[in-house]
């Protein structure tokens, strides 16, 4: 209450200054366009930004993907039809990336299709267990909730550098392993361990976000439902599978979709942690798009746009299927 009113008071004081300037302007505008058109006046700034930086780019992206050359501006770019897509799909053998003209695309695609299911499964599993634990009557709930959540606040770069420091050859983890008599491992130099830590670190950094959502979902389940189930002599395991899970399903669905969308877009942490390496072992799709479009010379915007459209299309199809399945489930 007090924090809230303080905040209100603070915003009030800050608000007073520009208000003096904007108010006459907006009042004049109201006189000019009339009260009925005022909602548009309120909408236009946000709508302009939405159109300019979200809707328009989608269409420009489509144009990019069917045009060539390394020129940035669309009017400088000749149309080349599906050539960018053809380049991406130009493969001798689809199961062997090295036979493709753009082998990195296929490696990134392969990595992403392995990374996403594993990372999402682990993430939701760990988040659900953590949420169930935090939903119990235990000491220090708030403290533990904070502990599991705070990495969400850290920037991906910080997260990556932190773990780099821990995983490096002479790092804390190897020191610990040495202390218990194990051979130190150069964690980020081997493809398999680098991949493992990629999953681990991204889960570490983001699970708190999903834990909070799931915890809120658990807390929204009314207690008397459980009490009624107990009166109906349902075993606790049954009340978990028959009450908790079904009632948590909408939240789980949201968490699942969010987790997949964000997992597919993983970039920052791995870019700093491994740079996609060793080799291309941890290079995911977004990094490929970045490398092709921005980091390599000449910049191949067309190829990057084609790859990103394929990625967006995959996400769209995934979300649509997921929604359909969940709606079908709800009808049962």
């Amino acid at each position: 209450m007090s924090a809230r009113s303080q905040f209100a008071a603070a915003t009030g004081t800050i608000a007073a200054l520009p208000a003096r300037l904007i108010e006459p302007l907006m009042y004049g505008l109201q006189r000019l366009v009339g009260i009925k058109r005022m909602p548009w006046v309120f909408l236009i700034p946000n709508l302009t930004a939405v159109v300019l930086f979200a809707l328009l780019p989608v269409f420009i992206n489509i144009f990019y993907s069917v045009s060539g050359s390394d020129r940035l501006f669309p009017w400088d770019r000749p149309l080349i039809g599906g050539a960018n897509y053809a380049t991406l799909f130009d493969c001798g053998n689809y199961l062997d990336p090295s036979t493709c003209s753009r082998d990195l695309f296929w490696r990134a695609l392969g990595n992403t299709t392995v990374f996403v299911p594993i990372q999402v499964t682990v993430m939701i599993g760990v988040a659900l267990i953590t949420a169930l634990c935090l939903n119990r009557e235990i000491r220090g709930r708030g403290f533990f909730r904070g502990i599991f959540f705070f990495p969400v606040m850290l920037s991906p770069v910080v997260v990556a550098l932190m773990w780099q420091w821990i995983l490096q050859r002479n790092g804390a983890l190897n020191g610990l392993m040495g202390a218990v008599g194990l051979t130190p491992v150069n964690w980020l130099v081997f493809p398999n361990t680098a991949f493992f830590w990629s999953v681990f670190i991204t889960v570490w950094a983001h699970m708190g976000f999903y834990t909070i959502i799931l915890l809120a979902g658990l807390q929204a389940i009314p207690r008397d439902v459980y009490e009624a189930a107990r009166m109906d002599s349902a075993s606790p395991w049954r009340s978990f599978t028959k009450i908790t899970l079904p009632l948590l399903k909408p939240v789980l669905l949201v968490v699942f979709i969010l987790a997949v969308i964000r997992s597919v877009q993983t970039f920052d942490e791995l870019y700093v942690l491994t740079g996609g390496g060793p080799g291309s072992a941890t290079m995911l799709m977004v990094q490929y798009i970045y490398e092709v479009g921005f980091a390599s010379q000449p910049r191949n915007f067309g190829l990057a746009a084609a790859a990103s459209l394929l990625l967006g299309l995959a996400l769209l199809i995934f979300t649509a299927i997921q929604m359909r399945i969940s709606r079908g489930g709800a009808n049962d």
Partner: peptide, 22 residues
């Protein structure tokens, strides 16, 4: 229109966003 942009991942429109900024 505003909520639909929820469905557009920022990375997907990275190139045109850069173009518009440019």
């Amino acid at each position: 229109a505003i909520l639909a942009t929820l469905m557009i991942p920022a990375t997907v429109v990275l190139v045109p966003t850069y173009m518009i900024v440019a």
